[in-house]
Amino acid sequence: MSNLIHLRTPLTDNDVVNLRIGDRVLVSGIIYTARDAAHKRLVELIDAGKELPFDILDQIIYYVGPSPARPGRPIGSCGPTTSYRMDVYTPKLLAKGLKATIGKGNRSEAVIEALKQHKAIYFAATGGAAALLANAVKKAEIVAYEDLGAEAIMRLEVEDFPVVVANDIYGNDLFREGVAKYERK
C-alpha cells in the first residue's frame, strides 16, 4: 500500500533510501525546470567540462513547458511533459549529482540503471493535471536560457507538489510492476 511522504529539497541519501515505488510524495522547496532544448545545452556544457548555470547537486529537475502566466500569477498551467525524450541526457546529469527528476511516462533501461547507480529517484506527476500542479508553485524565476521561451530553465518554489515514486533506487519500476499487476490475460 502506498504511503504519503513529505519531502523538502535538496534531497539527501536518507530521503531516497526510504522511498519505494507507489509511494505518494509531496515535494516542497526548490525545483528546476528543463525540457528538450535546455537538456541539450546542459549536457553540452558537461561534455565540454564547463560549469552548469545552476548547482544540480541533490536537486530535482522537472520536465515542463508551462503555458504563459496570467498577470499576477507566478506561472501558467504546468503539467509534466513526456520523459522518454530526456532519457538520452539523464544519466549524465545524475552522474553530476542530480537527485531526482519529475515527468510523465516510463524511462529507458539505461536511466533505470543510472538511478540505481547514483541513488536517485524518478517521480511521475499526473500528465494533464496542469492547473492543479500550478497551484503548488508559489514563485517562479528564470535562471538560464531565457531565449528558449517556454523551454527556459526556471527555478520554482513549490509547496506540497504531488508526485508518485515511479522508479526507486533499488531498480524497481512502477510502470512495469503496476501494469503486470492489473493486466488480464
Binding site: S67, G79, T126, A130, A131, V164
Partner: peptide, 28 residues
Amino acid sequence: SPVAKEVFAELLENAKIARECQMPMCQD
C-alpha cells in the same frame, strides 16, 4: 488500483481549478 484512483481524483480536482481560475487544464 489505489495509485490510479488518486490520478482520477487529481484530474477531477484539476478540472475544478481550471474552471474556477479560468486557466488551461493542460499546459499543452
